[in-house]
Amino acid sequence: MSVTVRLEGDCLDPRAELGALLEAAAGDGAVVSFVGVARPKSTAGAGVDELVLDHHPTLTRKSLEDIALAAAERFPVSQVRVVHRCGRVPAGAPIVFAGASAVHRRAAFECADYLMDRLKTEAVFWKREVGEAGAVWIEPTDADYADNGRWG
């Protein structure tokens, strides 16, 4: 079992993260990864140039670690990998990589799903969309909370 968590201020390369996960997953039968990308439009339809993710010097990383460790405990997986951007993320650029590997596919799918549901509501970030509408603070949606509620 191995858990990797990183908070990146400048760049997130999903291909490199998937490559590292595949390499670490030698012997497993399933590797699942999710990449979250900054959308160029707000939910109201306004153009978004960038997403700005403010973070806390200690609590943000701890929240990522807590979520990754909980996922590793909950599912029969051998690798959990979470890499999250902070700072200014241009529209179209990756924000988060969440991946897992396991002997069988179901655990890897469920682990990645769980990671993202918790990250979307509980990760300690304060996000704002910057674009046509100025700077707009973003909070989790009702759908995000409902998704997270599925895991009990």
């Binding site: 806390h56 990250l119 509980e122 990760a123 970030f125 304060w126 996000k127 603070w137 995000d144």
Partner: peptide, 23 residues
């Protein structure tokens, strides 16, 4: 994170956190 009845002395730095946005 501390509750509202947490004691403070003059040397404490206190942070107030808006509800988080998530990732």
């Amino acid at each position: 994170l501390v509750p509202d009845d947490h004691p403070l002395d003059g040397t404490d730095d206190v942070e107030f956190l808006a509800p988080v946005s998530g990732g």
